[in-house]
Design a protein around this nucleic acid. Structure first.
Length: 423
RNA sequence: GGAGAGUUGGCAGAGUGGUCGAUUGCGGCAGUCUUGAAAACUGUUGAACCGAGAGGUUCCGGGGGUUCGAAUCCCUCACUCUCCGCCA
């Protein structure tokens, strides 16, 4: 959520910035500012009344003590009048407050200056490319065929036991899964991310904290009985650790990582995009989260990108990095880099990571602040990224590393799998 | 699942209708003393909002009520803890 103070002072740059998302928010902003004006004026009046009431209450107490019943009762009449007015003003103030918040909820984050205007994924910029396209002696199989051939993943069994999008991993398929998690966590550990194992369900407040609620409610599984949500990403519990926290100035940078399964309803997905591992309702992911001083955010994002690059290189996958255009950048994000690996058999790019800086957009909702040098509280910056999401990595590994002798496991992974090929 | 006890400032913990944003202790910060540190002593130390400022308002788990006045009384919801039961 954008800060109201920022809207007051940076109206024009916000309107300009959000044009990169193909949005014209000028009417909304004007509406907000108009209501904000009313709100402030009503609030001032309300506070004046409250001040007078406080004053009178004190006097009345004094008068009672001195036994001046008459005078006290006269004063009481005045408080009665004030109370009526107060009730009226209060409902006005509260109403405006809610309307403003509702409007604020509709405004996405303002894109960073590096972000180009654009409509959808077609306008994303490729900023980096690396790795070789693999060559095959015969037509490569898609990962769902490979999974069947080597008995690594059983999709039908998942359908039987749960439903579509909840596969079973078996044998070496399961081991590969476990190896990737261990590999990713160890790599994150090497560069200073502290490992957490968070809860997999969160309460409503946490959903609001990271912005899944109220707008993306339908994307999370909901446990009715206890009002819990299954996490769609470890970002939710890891970032909410810092909800309502005021950090000392010297605590930065805070770097966390965690492996969790992620649960997504993905309502409305269909067709070839959901085939095999391409889109699941439950998948594994290692997430990295950073809490930063605003001055360090750009550097932090660079570091995260380097980290993810390293992972993909060590896995021997061809990949590219995209800087998302305004229209494709997530609601809460100020700038997002997507990592895509090339899937040789499907002949398309698969998104495996997304690294974003949110600046104060999340911390504003979270009330995550720090004491700056002037001893003032100031909002922190938050960032996060996948490092990495497993299913599409598995898809690419299987497809790109298939040979007549079996699927070759990248060397970096072998110490975790305990085998060097799947045959 | 049954019974009970709680929820107050960074933490501990007082406060049962007015002068309480809140005693006190610890912690933090600043200073005195010291070559330095520790100890001791002194002072200081919550957040949000309105206002150009002076200043004002709000917050003692959330919401509602009683009252001129609520941390304190009433209602309600949430959460936490303890004991018993069940279970990994």
């Amino acid at each position: 959520m954008l800060e109201i103070t920022r809207i007051r002072t940076e109206k024009d740059s916000i309107i300009e910035g959000l044009k990169k998302r193909n949005l014209d928010v000028a009417p909304t902003i004007d509406q907000i500012l108009d209501k904000d004006q009313q709100w402030r004026s009503a609030k001032t009046d309300l506070e004046a009344i409250a001040a007078e009431q406080n004053q009178l209450a004190k006097q009345i107490g004094e008068l009672f003590k001195q036994g001046k019943q008459e005078e006290a009762n006269t004063a009481k009449i005045r408080t009665g009048e004030l109370k009526l007015k107060e009730t009226e003003l209060k409902s006005l103030v509260d109403g405006l407050d809610q309307e403003i918040t509702q409007l604020l909820y509709t405004l996405p984050n303002v894109p960073n200056e590096l972000v180009k205007a654009g409509k959808d994924e077609k306008d994303n910029e490729i900023v980096f490319e690396d790795g070789e396209q693999p060559t095959f002696s015969s037509e490569p199989l898609a990962h769902w065929d490979l999974a069947k051939k080597y008995d690594l993943i059983d999709f039908e069994l998942g359908v039987k036991v749960t439903g579509a999008g909840f596969p079973f991993y078996k044998g070496k398929g399961a081991k590969l899964q476990r190896a990737l998690i261990a590999f990713f966590l160890e790599e994150a550990d090497k560069v200073g991310y502290e490992e957490y194992i968070p809860p997999l369900v969160v309460n409503e407040a946490s959903g609001y904290g990271t912005g899944q609620l109220p707008d993306k409610e339908g994307q999370m599984y909901y446990v009715n009985e206890d009002d819990f949500y299954l996490i769609p990403t470890a970002e939710v519990p890891l970032t909410n650790i810092f909800r309502d926290v005021i950090l000392p100035d010297d605590q930065f940078s805070i770097k966390l990582t965690g492996y969790t399964p992620c649960f997504r309803r993905e309502a409305g997905s269909y067709g070839k995009d959901v085939r095999g591992l391409n889109r699941l309702h439950q998948f594994d992911k290692v997430e990295i989260v950073r809490i930063e001083h605003p001055d360090n955010t750009a550097k932090a994002l660079e570091e995260m990108i380097e980290h993810v690059k390293g992972l993909l290189s060590k896995l021997g996958l061809q990949f590219r990095i995209l800087r998302l255009c305004g229209g494709d950048t997530g609601f809460a994000s100020a700038m997002t880099y997507d990592f895509e690996v090339y899937s040789a058999a499907q002949q398309k790019w698969l998104e495996v990571s997304s690294c974003s800086r949110f600046d104060t957009f999340q911390s504003n909702r979270l009330k995550l602040r720090f004491k700056n040098q002037d001893k003032k509280t100031q909002l922190c910056h938050t960032l996060n990224g996948s490092a990495l999401a497993l299913p599409r990595i598995v898809a690419a590994l299987l497809e790109n590393h298939q040979t007549p002798e079996g699927i070759l496991i990248p060397e970096a992974l072998q110490k975790f799998t305990g085998f060097d090929r799947i045959a």
